[in-house]
Write a protein that binds this DNA or RNA. Structure first.
Lengths: 130, 130
DNA sequence: ATTATAGTTGAATAACTATTCACTTGTCAA
DNA sequence: TTGACAAGTGAATAGTTATTCAACTATAAT
């Protein structure tokens, strides 16, 4: 295993375990895209934007008011969401209206919320025991 | 609306839309926790660790070999995952064996992968058209 | 035409974070 | 007891990124 001699600073204890895992690991590109996707949702501001847009179409100004932030800040975030095809927009007069491009994101959202609620419940159960 | 006079730099265009969204928004704490959760998965290294641990229990050394990174780096990441109750560990001799604490994470993983594959398929379809 | 407003954008700053490095702890084997 | 090695950790560094600020464009209204 020439590979681990250089960057990894330890011996292989369980050769079989390591080999098995290596054979099942998706390629680097997949991991990068996956991490990128989660990182995109992993920001409070963007979470709020996505939640708001899940209700209905909104212009930048609406979002700025809902989140109580500047138009510029919202616009920057919308730009990154647009680049990653998470939201799309249509122009009407002076306003630009945004909607969710992909409803997969909402699905992720909901499972995330479920996880948080689950953890919260568990925490409360443990507190009761004490 | 005193609130928007201070930090938001624009007038409210659609008062009804803004009010409706505000009434439906979860509290700040929920958004923070949700973003935190996604941020936790939104890192290539941690993604790989979680994927590997989804296969089976592994010690730090195994993970270091699978990811081809230093033990220290892996250990740091495992510490954050542990603090957030995403992984748990058991000690056995000199080794510390890690497993996933919560299988919700894997669910999130799978939907994320689905999303990526879906996008990839769409992209290929569009390329064929041209 | 001029003014006002919605939205975008590039640069700068400040805050955050992944990795590295050097060191420490704990356990096993000789 | 000593040496070797797995793992953890605090501090430092380097890279990333959210927000701010100051323009700028485009559209609508007077």
């Amino acid at each position: 295993m020439a590979r681990s001699e250089f960057t990894c600073d330890c011996n292989i204890i369980h050769q079989d375990v390591v080999n098995d895992a290596l054979s099942k690991m998706p390629d680097v590109n997949t991991f990068n895209k996956l991490a990128e996707l989660f990182k995109l949702i992993g920001d409070t501001t963007r979470c709020k934007i996505l939640f708001a847009l899940d209700q209905r179409e909104m212009c930048v100004c609406d979002l700025a008011n809902v989140l109580n932030m500047t138009k510029s800040s919202i616009s920057h975030q919308l730009a990154t969401l647009r680049k990653n095809e998470i939201v799309k927009c249509r122009k009407s007069g002076k306003e630009v209206y945004y909607t969710l491009d992909d409803n997969h994101i909402v699905e992720l959202f909901e499972i995330g919320l479920e996880h948080i609620n689950h953890k919260e419940l568990e925490r409360r159960k443990n507190n009761e025991k004490i």
